[in-house]
Amino acid sequence: MSDERDDGLRNRREALQMAGAAVGLLLLPIGRLGAEERGGRQPYWGYAIDTTKCIGCCACMRACREENDVAEGYFRTWIERYQIKADGSVTVDAATTDDFVFSERDPDSVKAYFVPKICNHCEKSVCNQVCPVGAAYRTSDGVVLVDTKRCIGCGYCVQACPYGSRFIDPRTHMADKCTLCYHRITKGQLPACVQACPKGARIFGDLSDPKSEISTILKQRRYRLLKPEMGTHPKCYYVGLDREVI
């Protein structure tokens, strides 16, 4: 009688152990997947813009267009000019036509500066979260991209982006945006806009490398983010940005 009960207990214990082992085996691959994503020496790309250096030549915009075949009338990166008058009124314009050359518009401004804009490649990007087909995504090296084989061109991401970084390409009817020149950075080259900048106003680098130029800048300089209150955790760091910029 007591032997039988022991057997039953033993069987149950063994069965539970087996079940535990089975669950453990099932969970093993999940754990491994996570480890792959976290570990390994892979870069985490970030971008910094020193607005005090920008001369508004728009070489970045021309280079981006040449490199990425961006649709006419649309921009993956652009330069805004902020002009502040004595009464505090702010006007913003951008050189979007005529080979991207700024025209003299408001010579009576008391303060004026250029602000290059680009996709912020946010850590918590909104565009990814609204995509209904999983075509907007963020790679583990920190770049927000569009899967051109999945995008259905619904435009939710274009509306969701607080920075206006996305647009629907009229030729492909799909969302298009800055890729940080993913085809270049994966080969060890700089994004075209960074390489083209004659004044070094655009800085690109590995945030996970404490010795990279961008890490040094973030440690030493005062910088600001665009719309941090949106909770998007942008990764484009602006050095010397003034309060008028939104």
């Binding site: 899967d147 993913y182 080969k187």
Partner: peptide, 26 residues
């Protein structure tokens, strides 16, 4: 490949890396 690296098609990343050839050579 959906879900391998996150909620997206894993091959898309390689597609993006091979999407075009670099034009500016440095």
């Amino acid at each position: 490949g959906f879900g391998r690296d996150g909620p997206y098609r894993a091959g898309a990343r390689d597609d993006a890396a091979q999407a075009r050839k670099p034009r500016y050579q440095g």
